[in-house]
Design a protein around this nucleic acid. Sequence first.
DNA 1: ATAGGGATTGGACCAAAGTCCAATTTCGCC
DNA 2: GGCGAAATTGGACTTTGGTCCAATCCCTAT
Lengths: 207, 207
Amino acid sequence: MRRPEGTVFVVDDEPAVLRAIERLLRAEGMNVVAFASPREFLERHDPEAPGCLVLDLSMPELDGLDLQRTLAERGQARPAVFLSGQGDIPASVRAMKQGAVDFLTKPVNDTELLNAVRHALARDLAARAKDAELAELRRRLALLTPRELEVLGQVVAGRLNKQIAAELGTVEKTIKVHRAHIMRKLQVRSLAELVRLADRAGMAASP
Amino acid sequence: MRRPEGTVFVVDDEPAVLRAIERLLRAEGMNVVAFASPREFLERHDPEAPGCLVLDLSMPELDGLDLQRTLAERGQARPAVFLSGQGDIPASVRAMKQGAVDFLTKPVNDTELLNAVRHALARDLAARAKDAELAELRRRLALLTPRELEVLGQVVAGRLNKQIAAELGTVEKTIKVHRAHIMRKLQVRSLAELVRLADRAGMAASP
DNA sequence: ATAGGGATTGGACCAAAGTCCAATTTCGCC
DNA sequence: GGCGAAATTGGACTTTGGTCCAATCCCTAT
């Protein structure tokens, strides 16, 4: 079973547990990188590499929740599967509210962990795909001049060229030229596509 | 503080807890309806009334999770806040995965419960608003004839009238008429609006 | 000062879309 | 058999949108 679909970053301060989990995941053909502490993870991991987390809840210095939150603040959030020894309910609830994929209690059931990790990897891939798409949209929008952005806003708001011209204090002819430039730069071939692109990129339509 | 924003349906088999929660919520000006058992709730509650749930996790016959799932199957899901006595972690995780707003342990902290309930009510209102909007869109789409739906699909796919005519084996003139009918029936005044309406209603664009 | 990009505009046209009025054709239903 | 909605089509225009070629005007960086 090919599984180059991302890496599983495991962080646990108990060496025995860390090795056991690493072995389990590798046996399934997954790419695994193990860290003995949150600090080590923060220093060495590659935020660009696709993948998910398997975090021990209670660790010295920074616990699993803190680590998860820290990554989120850096814009490096990843789907996480939490493991806890005796962990309390409030912690599990907090983890889930924070977007955890699952929260398992030790001793961990292998099947449950594998399912949770597969879900987490899938979620990360989906999130990265969405991010990539959004980045591509913004990259294209960045090619537009300020004026073209104004015109775009009016166009996707459903205004006619004539109305846009009046609004922007110019003539219809000019708007047509801007429109043509917009279509070319954004690589869309129909108004329908243009509207979708603008909406997905989160353009605020100003009345 | 006016709070006619939905009702809080409380279900707990312990009379003392039920009364205490009811009193707490009413003191905040909330509309509350208390039920001593899941069965009673299923028989008497109004699925149309906006509002959220406060569910005891462990109850005879049907526990809180079962009740939540049963409602979901009936298409009557509501945001729920769970309360548990000694509850285990797996139960709390399952509840959160199922979409619970929060999962609190008894004895419940009043402030936490109130905050959770407020979030749940807000979430229900938002969900109902979205549902209502979607229903409105579908209501309008239902006014279209089968042919008009075909044309709509092609239009929002960015096809020209000429192309659509060829595709549907008719002439451009006919397509124009259909388009005019579509715009009128859907109450949109621009192609941009039409595209958004179709997309939000989840129209699959066929190539 | 000078090149180059951005914003604008003209003119000339062509293509696409929308409108008004009118007329058939087809089909399921009473 | 006939009614009424749906689907179609014509004709005659008007409005909009798009394209080509060409030409200013302004501002910034070299």
